[in-house]
């Protein structure tokens, strides 16, 4: 079980193991360097975020598919003040919405190593997987080059 520093109900990062979530496979895959999501086995819709039930056709059988880890920056900001508890010490930090390569899907994440002035719509971005101190994983964007 993950070690939690903030009280659970003040920790934005969700619990990731099979004791707590039915989409623990997402986090297991992320640990192995794969960005994945669920695809409905009945209607074929690719869902973000990963689901256990398809909101389109109501089927509950999903398969895991790999998503591209590169894309183009669509929208962005840089948080200076007002970050929530647990993220105050990280500010300033940037956030961006990235349109995935060859996949009609956008993924929001923090952007590392870039201020607002370094960012432009259309820039090539790539995924960066981060590991928290307690072993949980998450993802961010960075410039591709």
């Amino acid at each position: 079980m993950a070690k939690i520093e903030l009280p659970y109900l003040l920790d934005f990062c969700t619990l990731q193991t099979e004791d707590f979530t039915r989409i623990h496979t997402f986090f297991d895959n992320l640990k192995e360097g794969r960005l994945t999501t669920t695809k409905c086995m009945k209607c074929g819709e690719i869902l973000w975020q990963p689901r256990t039930v398809c909101p389109h056709c109501n089927a509950d059988e999903m398969e895991w598919i790999d998503l591209p880890q590169e894309g183009k920056l669509f929208a962005f900001t840089e948080v200076i003040y007002g970050a929530p508890l647990g993220m105050e010490q990280d500010a300033p930090f940037s956030i961006g919405l990235v349109e995935l390569e060859n996949q009609p899907m956008s993924v929001l994440a923090r952007i590392d190593d870039a201020h607002y002035e370094d960012l432009e719509v259309g820039q090539e971005m790539k995924l960066k997987i981060i590991t928290l101190e307690d072993g949980r994983v998450w993802f961010r964007w960075v410039h591709k080059k």
Binding site: F12, Q49, V79, G82, P84, G86, L97, W138
Partner: peptide, 27 residues
Amino acid sequence: QTTMAAVMDREWDGVNGMSAPPFFAMI
């Protein structure tokens, strides 16, 4: 600010520092 960030989908948006000011900043 923490409560405001939890107005967003906490697990997939709030976790990225997304809250009202950054969201409307992107707009």
